[in-house]
Design a protein around this nucleic acid. Structure first.
Length: 284
DNA sequence: TGCCCCCTGCAG
DNA sequence: CTGCAGGGGGCA
């Protein structure tokens, strides 16, 4: 599902094609998927595309509002140039892109140059909404992204020391750290050699340092490989292509396979209603 | 802090 | 047909 690396991949791509585009029309197929008055977007020119944690932000020239988008688990943001299959700069699209809109398309933006932006979301958990610039900027204060320099040893230590919950639950708590979801939390904990069920406040300084390093490394690897499109996942990037990080999973979806560090079998368990993958031997 | 729920598709 | 998948909001 879209976590920071997937959302960042989409953001980077959209930021190469959307700035300068003017919105001609916004078609909302599913009311639940769009918050605000969609017609107020007509005539607006996109300035840039940014990201905060797992949220895509679309900023407009000279407008006091912006559009924020959360893909939740099955959301997709797909850009389609007016020439259909040939998208941009030699990025070939998956075949299905040519068939957009499809049965899961919830919102479509039509630009004056004929290109389009599709918001697809099978499970309708995601959303796209218009928010007030000032109010939004005030709200997003205080919680650093994994990619922010504020996410340092001191910060992670502070956050972990304040919680008696399992460390994996704290890592994925978006009110404490922005951007980590289930896949990257599992892989980070494995890389750091820390058990996902360890009480957050029981980690020592050395472990916290290792964990911070591992989280950053795993997230950056995720971005490098364009995010992950695991077995039953819907993630595709803004040009309709799958990610490649699933080819580099450390433990996620690897239950039964052998741990490269010690030969023990990777296990699957459940924690906080989510799957957890870990090596019972080298994660303590 | 923990648990239910939003929703759809698919495996069993 | 039931159960599961899961980000995160809401509510005990």
């Amino acid at each position: 599902m879209p976590e920071l690396p997937e959302v960042e991949t989409i953001r980077r791509q959209l930021d190469t094609v959307l700035p300068g585009k003017e919105i001609k029309d916004v078609v909302v197929f599913k009311d639940k998927s769009f918050g605000g008055n969609s017609s107020s977007l007509v005539g607006k020119e996109i300035e840039r595309v940014r990201r905060r944690a797992k949220i895509v932000e679309i900023w407009f020239r000279g407008w006091e509002k912006l559009v924020v988008i959360h893909l939740k688990m099955t959301g997709q943001l797909v850009y389609l140039a007016d020439d259909g299959m040939r998208v941009v700069g030699g990025h070939p699209s998956a075949d299905w892109v040519a068939d957009l809109p499809n049965g899961h398309t919830r919102v479509v933006w039509d630009f004056t140059d004929g290109s389009k932006l599709f918001f697809n979301d099978m499970r309708i958990f995601g959303w796209m909404k218009i928010v007030d610039r000032e109010k939004y900027e005030k709200e997003r204060m205080g919680v650093p992204d994994v990619t922010d320099k504020e996410f340092d040893f001191k910060y992670l230590k502070l956050v972990l020391s304040k919680s008696g919950r399992a460390v994996k639950l704290v890592l994925t708590d978006q009110n404490k750290i922005g951007g980590i979801g289930n896949i990257y939390a599992n892989d980070s904990l494995y890389l750091a050699g820390v058990s996902p069920v360890r009480k957050a406040n029981s980690l020592g300084d050395r472990e916290i340092r290792e964990l911070r390093k591992a989280v950053v490394e795993v997230i950056l690897r995720g971005i490098k490989f364009g995010g992950s499109s695991a077995a039953d996942e819907k993630y595709v990037n803004a040009f309709g292509q799958k990610g490649k990080y699933q080819e580099h999973f450390l433990v996620y979806e690897k239950a039964g396979q052998v741990c490269k560090r010690d030969g023990e079998k990777i296990r699957r368990g459940r924690l906080g209603g989510r799957s957890m993958f870990y090596c019972p031997k080298c994660q303590n």
